[in-house]
Amino acid sequence: MLVIKNITKSFNTLKALDGINLEISKGEFFGLLGPNGAGKSTLMNIIIGYLQSDEGEINFNNQKVAYEDLGVRKYIGYVPQEISLYLELSAMQNLKIFGMLYKLGKKELDERIKSVLDLVQLGDRSEELVKNFSGGMKRRLNLAVSLLHDPELLLCDEPTVGVDPQSRNAIFEMLQKLSAEGKTIIYTTHYMEEAERLCSKLAIIDHGKIIALGKLNELINLLNKKTSFRIEKNPDTVKNLKFLKELGTLIENDFYYELTPSEQYKSNSVIYSKLEDMGINDDYIEVSRASLEDVFLNLTGRSIRD
């Protein structure tokens, strides 16, 4: 559906994007992860035609997307990072104004407004001024405006910044519903748990380059980190220290031992069985697996970027 070929963009001496290549299929929920200043928003802005790339091209549904291509914007919805609404107007007025700019007829617009208000659960608050909305409500309306023209592709630029867990969860459910309906979604975020929950495919971008691309398990496998077992330090475990060391590499911390099993123990159930034999039950064991955050930090480093 969307093919990004060798996109390069510089701002003065800063190379924001450096030969980005991506292919996003129809119906995919694609996560774009990266530290601040990595180039995520720049890429989004180029996809929507807000910014012009220095090199490369973007194809949407096999058609080349030009800078300020008004035609393609009918098929793309953009959820900006900021609350991009007229706060002094009501939700309904906002929807009508933005809907008119998508050139929707009155009847179609009315239907779409009802539909998106139902989706974001603001149907009963539509006549209220947006400035009186909570942060979560504003975010939901921000999303609703981007869906007015029923786009095939939805670009979400960190759409849950600054909202409470309930609203965030509601937004996730809305996006998952849209994804289930067949919409293609590109989602940028800093929150790894969001990406893990939502995205079927992920790309990690840093210094303007894609440094990792694949499904969640493929990215985690990149880290090549084995499953480890955290065993609580207590008299029972201390007395079994010798036997624990026989199971693999054991690193002692202040409050627990971290056991990485040897190659011969390919199944976790074998380890559990051995530990149970030592009198160490499940209550003292915590399994530690590699997470997307581990992958992210491993690939992008731990230094602060801002």
Binding site: Y50, Y78, P80, I83, S84, F98, Y102, K103
Partner: peptide, 15 residues
Amino acid sequence: SEGSLKRILCMPVNR
């Protein structure tokens, strides 16, 4: 500054 200009610029509207 409130972001609505950018939203409009991402719609089928030119400068």
